[in-house]
Structure formats: structure tokens, C-alpha cells
Amino acid sequence: MKIVVLVKEVPDTYGDRKLNLETGLADRAASDTVLDEIGERALEVALSYADGHADTEVVVLSMSPEAAAATVRKGLAMGASSAVQLVDEALVGADLGLTAEALAGALQHIGYDLVIAGNESTDGSGGVLPAMIAELLDVPNATSLNSVEIAEGEVRGERASDHGTMQVTATLPAVISITERLPDARFPNFKGIMAAKKKPFETLSLAEVGVDAETTEASRSIMISLAEKPPRTAGTKIVDEGDAGERLAEYLVQNRLA
């Protein structure tokens, strides 16, 4: 079984995240970057399956700037067998369509039985890439899963939907995405970190995965304006002197909120 896990470097949500107002791109220097937690959980799903099935190959795949290689390497330290980083100048500022095409191209290049992704990243939080990639690869999407059961030839799980849950099954090859309900990821240990240095780390360009970023056959989404919202300011702050509940009721009624 060959499992490819999609991982992503994101700005750490514990700090302020900035967009560059000139380029519209994420300002990577403005905040610490980390491997997105949901991607780590996705990797954990693959690694725990691999723990019980010796013939499993786990590959981490990331489309990112070259500088994110160290972050991607964390996936190797956690236990992935190899890493593939898709790096190309033409991908800077890529929209969802180009990102999906690039990742689908890379997946075809690498080969896979199962693709595991997080349901949505903490930065873009679009939540659409797994389904887009499944469409491009013509494989099932079993997405937004609260539980995952990988069997020979298929994958099953409970899908968190809008009005409850569903039990879904997909025949492999398939693309799945997981929610935060899946277990926390393991920490890389010293042995893992040392071993990671010797594991295969491949860098691919768009041309190598057969994708043309400049094609006019696809319509792309482009940013046409960007503005920083003025920070919210504090309003009235009172210390309760025994009548705060009354005063808040008054405030809500005056503002037609109650």
C-alpha cells in the first residue's frame, strides 16, 4: 500500500499572521512557520496504519517554496518513508485551480493507492483541494472523515457532514480528508530525526509533473484588491459593582440586540 499524505507549511496561528499589501502574498517572514497541525494528523493516520502493515510506504507531499523544506522534513522525522516537495516559481500565488492541478500532477508522478489530507488548512481554510484533486484524478473523494478504517482495496469512515454524519466507503485508489477528531500526531523522536537525514527527499518542478501554469485553457482566480482591516478597538469596559448584569441588559436593549 502506497499512501501519500499532503502536508503544508503555514504561519503559526499563535502569532500574528500578515499578508504583504504590495504583493498580496503571505508574508512568510512576519511569523513563525509550522507544519499545519491537521496535516500532521493526516500523517498520523498513515503512520499508524503503517505500524501494523509492514508493506506500507508513506510519502509526504508538499507544494511549497524551497525554504519550506525543513518543515516538510519534519514529516520524515515523524516516520514517513520519503518526501516530495513541489517547488516552482510559477506556483507563487497559485490559486486553488492551479494548486489542485499541480498536486494532482505530482500524485500521478509519485503513484498512490490512498491520498490523505487535512479537511482544511489553518491559513487558506478553503477545504476544497481534496475534492478538486479527486476530480482531476478521477478517483472517489471520501472527505471530512471523523474516523478512518483502511482495508485491502477500500477505505471507510464516518463523514462529518452539515446535518449529521454519514458512513462512507471508497474503493482504492481514493482521496480522503480527515477532521480534528482524528488522534494527535506523534512527536518525532531523536532516532526519527537522525533517520530523516538519510531518507529520500525529492524536489519536483511543474514541468516534471506535466503542468503548465501559464495555460489559458483554465480560468484562474486572481486577487484584485487587498486591504488590512483596521484593528477592532475596545469599547466600554466596566468592573462589576453588583449591577453589571442590569447594565448589560440595558446595553443590549438599547442596541436592539435583546
Binding site: 498580496g24 489559458t216 480560468s219 486572481i222 484588491s225 487587498l226 486591504a227
Partner: peptide
């Protein structure tokens, strides 16, 4: 924190 407008190329 930011307002962004987007359009498509065609």
C-alpha cells in the same frame, strides 16, 4: 484581519 477581493481571468 484582511479584506480581499477576487475575480477570475475569464
Amino acid at each position: 484581519a484582511y479584506n480581499v477581493d477576487s475575480a477570475v481571468t475569464w
